[in-house]
Design a protein around this nucleic acid. Structure first.
Lengths: 305, 305
DNA sequence: ATGAAAGCGCTAACAT
DNA sequence: ATGTTAGCGCTTTCAT
């Protein structure tokens, strides 16, 4: 700014006004400044600006892991929405460890993040202390729970479990097995499972397999093939997420479509609306659709083997 | 810092020294300051520090898209290595558009990124101008080309094409088809293809299908099944990337394992070593392994149909 | 070992 | 419409 001021013979204030698109600058002056900026290849210094305005226009995302494409999709949504509104995005992964989450949150805050996006509803005490003292906007995603301490944007995971189950039930299945990943570290999975369990007893020889993620379902699909179990004739298999290959696998996978990218956009948007215009952050329930494809069908009518 | 100085009756300089781990502080004083910091829940302001030191300890990653898990894996590697060295990571997606890349690079720089990680070897003129004037460390990944204007950390994509082809050739295949995605936007794919083409003529009815990514191979696998073509008995299918499900699909996919996460780590590390200790950034060739699984076999001995 | 003071590059009153 | 000036919160000589 100083340099441009010198080059144009104007004051730093005027140059700053041009940079920030202030209205009260003579068109002629503005041009002059703009030209000088282009000529000098000048780029304003975000740190200085942040220091002066106490605004960084930076959002922080705390992601469990980037190793699962579902989170990549989520992050993609966040990134696009942030970029669209001129916000930068800094990301940190937590490995599903709430203590790590707190530590990484601290890093993001020091870095200047003005808002945070986290996953699930389990927080470390350190994390809560961190956001309590500041008045820091944080949104918790993947879950919807109006009573949670943070505003939530996500699903009613219990209802999701029930919804998936309903599809299988409607098809006529009564003996349904559930395949899920590790529960210790993931409260969403636990809730989905609870939703399924709530309406299920344990019975032998399932006719349907409900997988709590598409990745699991894909494994099941391949495993079934290996064991020469026909899907869906002998066994129906259903997934969760609707990952991109779910439509093209064989047989195409019946699954619950979760609007993951949209969830990312909404989370980013909520934070940005709060930061830019003080709009309160509202919890938001996202619906999922059952996408019926060919991996589920009515159970076999007669007993086999 | 000011607040802590007030609380302890020391000067801001001393407090700053403690925060930065300077050696010349009395142990007693240090304790006192540390206690005050903990009590006040004080967090240093990164923007102020960046402004003062002209260092942001921030890396920028320009990723084509987060919608493909291969890039998520890559980003994961970058993130972990950055975090390990106390660097923050800001990410932007380019959608494989070199003009967008230049614009987003500008954003990352304004934000204070001290180094950039990009993909491939096609750059916009705007991008080149951007890094030319500053002495900004940038590493180009996914490719290895010692003669490229930027240091490259990645593969010899031509050789990769040849390597994959060799496996099929060694098996006895002579009629090999190549399945690839859009070429317009991806120079790595183009090179891999060139590598394959260089040693291939066009002949009818392939006995093997070389897919330039695992995602493509998965599609092919399912499509083959739909068309009741037995893999690998009638048709061998080979992929690229070794995504996580490649081992568990049916049949398990023969593919080229690319050390994607490691590439991310190396890229981040190269930047950090340069930034922290002035170590020159060296181009680095990453090797790929052929992972032989069950989707490839010798071609059928007699003509079918 | 500690303190005083001068910036880092920008924005934002307040003047003019 | 433009200029002056005082910080923003930290680091860093230079003194002491």
């Amino acid at each position: 700014v100083r340099g441009i001021a010198g080059a144009t013979g104007l004051s730093v204030a005027t140059v700053s006004r041009v940079i920030n698109g202030a209205i009260n600058v003579a068109p002629r002056t503005r041009r002059q400044v703009l030209d000088a900026i282009a000529a000098a290849g000048f780029e304003p210094n975000a740190a200085a600006r942040a220091l002066s305005t106490r605004r960084s226009r930076t959002l922080g995302a705390l992601i469990p892991t980037l190793a699962h494409s579902i989170f990549a999709t989520f992050l993609n949504g966040i990134e696009r929405e942030s970029a669209r509104h001129g916000y930068a995005l800094v990301v940190a992964t937590t490995g599903n460890d709430i203590a790590v989450e707190a530590a990484r949150a601290r890093d993001l805050l020091q870095l200047g993040a003005e808002g945070l996006i986290v996953s699930g509803a389990r927080r470390d005490a350190g994390f809560e202390a961190l956001i309590a003292q500041r008045r820091l906007p944080v949104v918790a995603t993947s879950i919807y729970n109006p009573r949670y301490v943070l505003p939530t944007i996500g699903y009613d995971n219990r209802a999701l479990g029930r919804l998936a189950l309903r599809h299988l039930r409607d098809l006529g299945h009564r003996r349904i097995a559930v395949l899920h990943g590790p529960l210790a570290e993931n409260d969403r999975t636990r809730l989905r499972l609870a939703g399924v369990r709530a309406a299920l007893g344990t019975r032998p020889t399932p006719t349907a397999l409900l997988c709590l993620s598409d990745v699991l379902a894909l494994g099941a699909l391949f495993e079934a093939r290996r064991a020469t179990i026909e899907v869906p004739a002998q066994l129906s298999i259903m997934g969760f997420d609707d990952l991109d290959w779910a439509a093209v696998c064989e047989p195409p996978l019946t699954t619950l479509r979760l609007p993951t990218a949209r969830m990312g956009e909404l989370a980013a948007r909520a934070l940005i609306d709060f930061l830019d215009r003080g709009a309160p952050i509202r919890a938001c329930l996202l619906a999922a659709d059952t996408v019926v494809r060919e991996s589920t069908a009515a159970p076999p009518t007669r007993r086999r083997r």
